[in-house]
Design a protein around this nucleic acid. Structure first.
Lengths: 110, 110
DNA sequence: AAAAAAGTTATATTATATGGAAACTTTTGC
DNA sequence: GCAAAAGTTTCCATATAATATAACTTTTTT
């Protein structure tokens, strides 16, 4: 990526994302935002696991899956089902919360 | 279910769930808790959709799926992928938050 | 630096979530 | 109460998430 526009002074992160990845709502941008979330979720698993002083193998044993599975969940850019997420955090004795907010009102789920 | 125990005065909801469904951590109970969460998530979709004054068909059009699909998401006890959830709430212009908490520390994801 | 442990990746299989179509049921408006 | 609209369910196909195994790479320990 080159900075061709001489007049450009500053851009917000959002402006950059709009320009380089696509506007919010476009498939490209949505995918990016989604991947980002997935990455964070994976990091979340990893950091809680570390906090509990577990190896991937040990966490796997708690859940009943191989370590390779844990590795994937921690680093995959792919999609996950809620069931899997809950299973993992349950084993880690951590609580997951989903909440939905629209405008002012916020509704908590679980 | 009968109330055989004459001495029983009161029970908390948790005690009832422990007795009738199984202790937390048992597969039965975990499934129950999970179903509950899923149900709430479906209800969440429904209530936000209603808030936006949309029919299932209209919401489906926004996302690009049939109304039957929306119906399923709103009422299914089945599992869902995060991608699907995000897709729906994105269309509803609502924000979904996942957060994970263990002990005192709370980490926000997305 | 060698050995052991932890983590990653590739490949393949199985289970299941997504989705459409259409018939059906329930709710709503007149 | 009837018709239309909204929602649900069933049946089915397709896509993909979950998983194991085993080889591989990276990190840690001694």
């Amino acid at each position: 990526m080159e900075a061709k526009n001489k007049k450009m002074k500053m851009m917000t992160l959002d402006q950059l994302k709009d320009r380089d990845i696509g506007k919010i709502g476009t498939p490209e941008r949505d995918k990016y935002e989604f991947d980002l979330r997935m990455e964070l979720l994976g990091e979340m698993i990893k950091s809680v696991r570390k906090e509990r002083n577990l190896t991937q193998e040990q966490l796997g044993e708690l859940i009943g899956v191989q370590k390779s599975q844990i590795s994937k969940l921690e680093r995959s850019t792919k999609n996950v089902t809620i069931e899997t997420i809950l299973k993992v955090f349950r084993a880690l004795k951590a609580n997951v919360r989903f909440s939905v907010e629209m405008n002012e009102s916020e509704f908590k789920v679980a």
